[in-house]
Write a protein that binds this DNA or RNA. Sequence first.
DNA 1: CTAGACATGTAAGGAGTTACATGATTGC
DNA 2: GCAATCATGTAACTCCTTACATGTCTAG
Lengths: 181, 181
Amino acid sequence: MKGGRTKFAILSLLRLGPLSGAEIKDYCQSRFGQFWSESYGQIYPALNLLCEQGLIRKLEDDEIGKSKKYEILDTGRTFLREWVETPSSDRLVRDELILKMFSASMVAPETLLSEIESALSKNAENMAKIEFGIATLREMNAAKSDAGYWALILRSGQLMASARQAWLEEVLAHVQARAKN
Amino acid sequence: MKGGRTKFAILSLLRLGPLSGAEIKDYCQSRFGQFWSESYGQIYPALNLLCEQGLIRKLEDDEIGKSKKYEILDTGRTFLREWVETPSSDRLVRDELILKMFSASMVAPETLLSEIESALSKNAENMAKIEFGIATLREMNAAKSDAGYWALILRSGQLMASARQAWLEEVLAHVQARAKN
DNA sequence: CTAGACATGTAAGGAGTTACATGATTGC
DNA sequence: GCAATCATGTAACTCCTTACATGTCTAG
């Protein structure tokens, strides 16, 4: 399918209200960041495609010069709903740090420390973002039906991040122990 | 860099002994499956590239007709080691199921059940593979320095899979509760 | 010898990122 | 008006999968 899953990420966001390309990028980062990402190189072409296909439309610039906002159409909502009802493709993970673990015995343990620490701090950042997201969600008073699912998204981030933290700490301990000998 | 990280995945495996393209594919699936994957369309071109660059070599076919095996060279080992010492790129996750959660309120809860259940059973499969991997590792008596790191890889799979299971169960409970009303 | 299985290889195309170009807006 | 900023857009490139084509071994 042309435009792939980027189209659905965009439609998902537009369901809640009109957005511009840049806003879509921002929201992707802040709301989907842990498990999905899109770059401008995908977003802008996809927006044009969605327009051509009559799934969204460009809002007339009431205030000229402002960034172009796009609005989802009923056809777009239907398209989005059908996708939700369709079986998902497999989860894809690409984790270079774990791949390196496979050959980690080739290098001095000390060499690995900085990478593990930077992974830990990146993970801590993620956890903070998720906490912030949880706080925000409470104040958002979204439709109740949405709020439940969105909380589950954040919950997934929580569970994954704390599993990762636990793992990184085990790795750190192992590497430090090896460094001592 | 040409050939990207596929080259390193291949070199990582070849470090342990000569392998053919198909064996590399199998090993990727069984050992790296949870966090890395490669397809033939990447493996074969990468093998040729690695040969051209003098990092591996094709073994002479002592027994003709057998699948072509490739062996890592010292230059390849050095290249691999340097990569391990280099900062990693960010972890990438693409999880369509979670993306759908964002719009899940658009559909009847019952619609979601089969997807959740299939995600649960796929996850259970993964957990079983990891358990098998742990048992295998014990019998492999790999070099002790490798065994420690490899156990950590499996440990990561364990932690992630059980976090995911916990999450999927929460999702299931939520969806079932919504279905009752 | 032949059918099936399996390994190798490739071509086409979609997915995704990066770096750059353009044009408008805002603040000074 | 000028610089800085920001949104939009695009081109080039890498990454990755899929489907197909080819060749080779093996069982019967």
